[in-house]
Amino acid sequence: MNIDHHIPDEILLAYASGSAPEAWSLIVATHLALCPQCRERVSEHERMGGSLLESLPPEALTEDAFDLLMKKIDGQPEQEVTVKEPVVWVPSVLPEPLRSYVGGDLHALKWRRLGKGVLHIPIETKDGQAQARLLKVPAGKPVPTHGHNGDELTLVLTGSFKTHQGEFRRGDIETADGDVEHTPLAGEGEDCICLAVTDAPLRFKSLGAKLVQPFIGI
């Protein structure tokens, strides 16, 4: 599998530095599971973090800090020896960490209707800025036309979709910012399931879609 569309460097950096909101980090980490190249880049960025940490002027802790720490460590309940469970090879469509966020693989999902055959599942994160959700667009159907107030990242998990930027398949990331207005079209043959994260509510073009927007929480 070849990934053609990657996550922009500055977003990978936000993930590595810890400044990205949780929903962004969720889509980055899920893409990383499918993309060795971005995985490598995040490691590079984390190395920068390590290197910056190393170069910080040390600030002394209180006199007895080490003794207090050892007391704390000795007082811990016996650490269960972390023997890694042998990996049970259950193939799944949704990679971690996404699978844990939605409570299981595809068969466990409870889809809600979004209109025009499109289904969705809002995903709960603790950040107040960005919103994550799974979208399921029937094969060959368009996703309702929308523009953005902010940035949107979309990660394809099954099927594919096309925009003017090209075709997006499993593992690919589509990046849209405030200026982009697009009508993604799902590919034929397989429903397109993707993870979409926005840092501002979408602006839908049609009045109908606008009217329902406040009620469906996207």
Binding site: M1, G18, E22, S25, L26, V28, A29, T30, L32, A33, L34, C35, P36, R39, K84, V87, W89, V90, P91, S92, V93, L94, P95, E96, P97, R99, Y101, G171
Partner: peptide, 12 residues
């Protein structure tokens, strides 16, 4: 901070 799972069978 969501992290990938190195032992996930879905990991490429």
């Amino acid at each position: 901070h969501p992290e990938l799972d190195q032992n996930d069978p879905s990991l490429l």
